[in-house]
Amino acid sequence: MLRLEALRAFVEVADHGNIKGASERLFRTPSALSMTLKQIEDRLGCPLFETDRKSSLTDMGRFLYDQSVALLRDYDRAMERIAAQSKARSGRLRIASVPSVATMLLPDFLQEFISTRPDLDIDLVDTDSADVRLLVETGQVDIGIAGFAGDRPGMATRPIFRDPLMLVCRTDNPLAAKGQILDWDDLEGEALVLNEAMRSLASDRFQQLILNARYAVRNVASLIAVVRAGMGVTLMPALATVNLPPNLTVRSLRDPACMRTVSLHWRLGRVPSPIAQRFLQDFTLAAQEMTKSFGLEPVV
């Protein structure tokens, strides 16, 4: 079998038309190159050059040259791709995120993240926390960004910021006139529209209020449309309320339990790819800085 180093030496000699120029290019002595060429010829059982001057190839030499150039080109390109992936410059990164992070934090971050990684492919799934958890647990995505309650078996978690749950209602709803901070008793008799962010809220009074809830909506756009239509009020993370329609307003809730912790999640027992590791590192820092501008509390 001919080694790649030997084929590279042969191609350099053929390109230069002499051993001296090739030896300077490869930082090898002329005698070492001559020995390499002789080993190739002995292996193939035929000469590669018409004369000892190495200025012209035989038919076999021309055939070997063409094959070697193609082989070395493919090899070098493959090694470049391998190096790029190992150094987190390329690859494929699959992310699942709750909508608030996907719309408010990820676009600016990803634009900068991929600007120096032209060969990086990003798959982004925008869904609720339950689906994010499922996609991470089943290995369909590399990284999840969501607010989970408590530890999840088989899943690593890195908190990045805390986000209060806010009451969202129409501006003409009587709740909007009750002040900026509400108590659970203020919601008595209101039609609550449930969503995934509310399900993990550990408050006895809240659990009593939702016993008569008639609607549950998972999609954020649909949730906002239902509230706009006057079908009820809901709770949404503060980050998700930044760009609400004009006829909707938000109010804080006094209960300290109205808080979600948004975290990065990935599977335990599986080493993240180099690009996933870089994303985990860079997005943690970027998200903590970006959320400060929204008045949220980073977890450091």
Rank of each mutant, 00 (worst) to 15 (best):
V242G: 00
Y215L: 15
P164Y: 03
L280C: 07
I160T: 03
S222C: 06
A78I: 01
F161P: 06
L44H: 12
A130H: 07
A102G: 15
P274M: 06
L44R: 14
R254Y: 08
R53L: 11
P174L: 10
L72C: 04
I181C: 04
E196L: 07
T116K: 13
A9W: 12
G154E: 10
G21V: 03
D163K: 04
A6F: 13
L105D: 01
L33P: 00
S203C: 15
P298H: 00
G150Y: 05
E297I: 04
E297P: 01
C169H: 02
R218F: 11
L134W: 03
R117M: 05
D76C: 09
Q67G: 05
D123T: 04
L134A: 13
T36E: 12
D121E: 12
A22S: 05
M166P: 06
P99K: 03
L253I: 15
Q67D: 01
N173M: 01
M236T: 00
Q208C: 09
I19M: 02
T234I: 04
C169G: 00
G45N: 02
S203T: 13
R92N: 15
V69L: 03
D108P: 07
V69C: 01
D123P: 00
L296D: 03
E297D: 11
M155W: 05
P272N: 03
I210P: 15
D185L: 04
Q281M: 05
A257T: 13
A225Q: 13
N247S: 13
A238Y: 02
S200I: 13
D131T: 10
P245Y: 01
L268G: 08
E5D: 15
F113L: 04
A221I: 09
L105S: 08
A238H: 05
A287Y: 06
A149C: 03
C258Y: 01
I40K: 08
H265T: 09
L182A: 09
L182H: 05
M104K: 14
S252W: 05
R270V: 12
A238N: 04
N173I: 02
A146D: 00
R94C: 08
G17W: 13
L268M: 14
M259Y: 06
